[in-house]
């Protein structure tokens, strides 16, 4: 029983960090109507920035977030402004080609990191990396708990931003009806730039939080793109609440898979759930709340 509880708790902690990455993807998808296949690569870049700060200057990964997030915000804004929006301006280019462009961006980011850091596996070792604390007879990892708490705080801050500020509301309005938002005086193309920036910053935050838990190498981005994509589908595309539920589901599923099947097959469990959702619940969790 305690093994089961421990597995679930571990899944929830991990899931919250996945959710943070997926919320970034969902935000971008909501406003741009495209799936950002470079999202995992952005997570990876965020991880490398955090890693670099740790290695060179000894900055703790959780503090490194305050560098990786603004850096990725800026990179995201530039990508949207000078690459993706350039395609949007041309009517004859299909939206599918924007998706292809994100694949290209993913490749460039991945190979640039390989050029700088080589393909070696890297990890950060901090004083608390392997520390745990006990709740009854359940042991809980400290870096995961930290990651969970910070992910929750960031999600909550994002929620406040999206519901309480005019800029946040403009982002939601643009996602729901772009033309109507323009009628209200919203500069929709500026909103896409800001949204891509925020989405990238969230990816970076997720990367920094996961750095103490994962090995880092340039191709790890694919893993996170796949995870974020699965979560986005699970949650019903474009829904923040759905992304949180989807993230927790994936976290718990992987954790159960790792405990009860084998560590090597944990991703399979997530993919099986993904397939089942596509087959039987194509709208994701949103199918439950919406007629």
């Amino acid at each position: 029983m305690s093994l089961f509880l421990q597995t679930i708790i571990c899944g929830i902690l991990l899931g919250a960090m996945y959710a943070l990455i997926a919320i970034g993807m969902t935000l971008i998808m909501g406003v741009m109507k495209i799936i950002n296949l470079a999202h995992g690569a952005l997570v990876m870049v965020g991880m490398y920035i955090t890693y670099f700060c740790f290695k060179e200057w000894g900055i703790d990964p959780y503090l490194g977030m305050f560098i990786s997030m603004p850096a990725l915000f800026l990179i995201g804004c530039l990508i949207q402004k000078y690459l993706i929006n350039r395609l949007v301006e041309v009517d004859s280019i299909l939206p599918e080609n924007q998706v292809l462009l994100t694949v290209g961006i993913m490749l460039v980011l991945t190979e640039t990191m390989r050029l700088i850091f080589k393909s070696d596996y890297r990890s950060v070792v901090t004083s608390y990396s392997t520390k745990t604390f006990f709740l009854g007879d359940i042991s809980i990892s400290i870096p995961m708990t930290f990651g969970f708490l910070i992910a929750m705080i960031l999600t909550w801050l994002l929620h406040l931003f999206l519901t309480r500020t005019d800029l946040g509301r403009s982002i939601r309005a643009t996602a729901q009806d772009r033309d109507a938002a323009i009628y209200m005086g919203v500069n929709a193309s500026r909103i896409t730039v800001i949204t891509f920036g925020i989405g990238s910053a969230l990816a970076a935050a997720g990367g920094s939080l996961l750095l103490p838990l994962f090995y880092l190498w340039p191709d790890i981005g694919h893993l996170f793109t796949a995870k974020a994509f699965i979560i986005t589908i699970l949650g019903g595309m474009g829904s923040t609440m759905g992304a949180i539920l989807g993230g927790l589901t994936l976290g718990i599923a992987e954790s159960l898979g790792a405990t009860y099947i084998s560590m090597g097959y944990k991703d399979v469990v997530g993919l099986i759930i993904f397939l089942l959702v596509l087959l039987f619940l194509p709208g994701g969790f949103r199918s439950f709340t919406r007629r």
């Binding site: 033309d179 938002a181 209200m184």
Partner: peptide, 25 residues
Amino acid sequence: AHVPEGRRLFPEMSVKENLEMGSLL
């Protein structure tokens, strides 16, 4: 101010938020 055909509200925002969206400037 343009009140478009088919109303074009922001369907997942509250009535109040829709009105607030009208007064961004």
